[in-house]
């Protein structure tokens, strides 16, 4: 029965996405809504993303300096390892997991609340394609803004590594910067952006799907918000693995 339920949601999700990508009724209305969403997602999440990124970089640097303390590996490798692990893995994955919690739950609650207060029905009766109007601007905004947040997180994460190692005497500034500049592979940055785009798509569409089809009352609305975070996070981690396999072959 549960297996059938998964297939039901899978099919419903794809039909929903087909409706989302319909032609907008009026571009000016979509433009305004997209700008609002970009502000909400981008500016609204900047501080928390920077805070998390700085600690991720700091913890990674401290732990690697602990693991590499034997003396066989040059110390500037700490900067190199922090850079690559932040760019390839931690910046896109952590940022999007945090955004799944912050932005995804917010989207599910907002759209679910509109469903419960009959706002979506009211728009439908006016002739608005609600799936497109409510979801497409959020999706476009997320696809533009989240990769930028991920890039900022990568920069701040590397800075966090510097802050955790240089002032505390674990490394000199020259060693850390030498590490950051060693063995740089620009393909890793491409991988970071691929992950950011895929994860943005997942967290936005899964969260909006959960909110759009909510039924019942406030308990169900809370559940849809929780489901949005849980399913987005699981799918982000699953696709993280799949992207890692595909892009590192």
């Amino acid at each position: 029965m549960n297996n059938l339920n998964i297939f039901h949601h899978f099919g419903k999700y794809f039909l929903f996405m087909r409706t989302v990508f319909s032609r907008p009724e009026k571009f000016s209305m979509y433009y305004k809504e997209t700008m609002r969403q970009m502000n909400d997602i981008g500016i609204g999440s900047l501080i928390i993303i920077c805070l998390i990124a700085i600690f991720i970089g700091a913890v990674t640097a401290v732990q690697f300096s602990y693991q590499l303390s034997g003396g066989l590996v040059p110390r500037y490798y700490i900067g190199y390892v922090v850079r690559d692990i932040v760019i390839i893995e931690l910046a896109p994955t952590f940022t999007c997991l945090v955004l799944a919690g912050k932005v995804g739950s917010n989207m599910a609650a907002e759209i679910g609340g509109m469903r419960q207060k009959e706002h979506i029905d009211a728009m439908e009766i006016m002739g608005v394609n609600t799936a497109t109007f409510l979801i497409l601007p959020k999706l476009i905004a997320a696809l533009i803004v989240i990769p930028l947040l991920v890039a900022i997180a990568a920069f701040v994460g590397n800075s966090g590594g510097y802050i955790a190692t240089v002032p505390t005497g674990l490394l000199t500034a020259e060693e850390y910067i030498q590490g950051l500049r060693s063995f740089f592979v620009d393909y890793n940055v491409v991988m970071m952006f691929v992950k950011a785009i895929v994860f943005s798509f997942i967290l936005t569409t899964v969260s909006c799907y959960q909110g759009y089809f909510v039924k019942g009352g406030s308990i169900e609305l809370g559940q849809s918000s929780t489901n949005a975070v849980v399913y987005s996070s699981i799918l982000i981690l699953l696709f993280d693995y799949l992207i890692a396999i595909v892009l590192t072959q």
């Binding site: 009211a122 439908e124 009766i125 006016m126 002739g127």
Partner: peptide
């Protein structure tokens, strides 16, 4: 949706 342009509804 075209028909609904001719419809008003009070909820």
């Amino acid at each position: 949706r075209e028909i609904r342009m001719k419809v008003g509804m009070l909820f």
